[in-house]
Design a protein around this nucleic acid. Structure first.
Lengths: 117, 117
DNA sequence: CTGCATCCGCGATGATACTG
DNA sequence: CAGTATCATCGCGGATGCAG
């Protein structure tokens, strides 16, 4: 997992090392990651359920984004060995620690919308 | 400015409309926007100063990211009609209202780094 | 000093079909 | 149900040169 941090360790801002910001943005900034985390913060969700809840996302992208979130330790994947197979996704502790930020972003976004009609 | 909201108005998540999150992510999620906002939150900064403070960014990208932030009402642009011209950038009120989120992201990022070494 | 214009490669994303 | 594989595309972003 640590290798995902590569490319962030060598940036040197003089005012202040802003890398943690970039890192966070890199982790949650994917095209659909915000929505995914937001949904998972409310309830554990299965693959097809996620797909249904996120209109417009392709199966491929959903898989990829989930894999990245998993690699970053944000999301947990639990396979039920039934037939057909069921796969449940949920937030890890680290993932849950992101929800305050997500919620701040929601509030800011709503505020922004209301101010710009 | 309102037209930048297009594409967000029609997303319909059943669990909850997550669009404000996507919108916020869209506004601050650019490759360098986090750093830019972070720097501007500390002090007004001129173009070349920004370029110097952000190693690795190309002139082109700095211009583009600043233009987007300006179009989104996050950043203010002030031209000093000297020779040579000087252009100062600063946060708008809306831009300043983002800094708590940015700071949360910094803290989360630092925490993340220390936990994943 | 602060940009804009142009060219271009590459990665991100979509569409579609196939699988255990 | 939950993916994987493959192909095609499209825009991001880098490099470079020009301009006021």
């Amino acid at each position: 997992m640590g290798n995902r941090l590569n490319g962030f360790g060598d940036c040197s801002i003089e005012v202040e090392r802003a890398c943690p910001i970039e890192l966070t943005l890199h982790i949650i900034g994917g095209k659909w990651k915000g929505v995914i985390i937001n949904i998972l913060s409310k309830k554990d969700t299965r693959f097809n359920e996620l797909k249904r809840l996120i209109p417009g996302i392709s199966q491929r992208m959903l898989t990829l984004q989930l894999r990245e979130l998993e690699a970053d330790g944000i999301v947990k994947r639990k396979v039920e060995e039934t037939i057909p197979i069921k796969v449940g996704y949920s937030l890890t502790h680290q993932g849950e620690s992101l929800t305050p930020i997500i919620q701040s972003m929601r509030m800011w976004g709503n505020d922004y919308i209301s101010k710009n009609e």
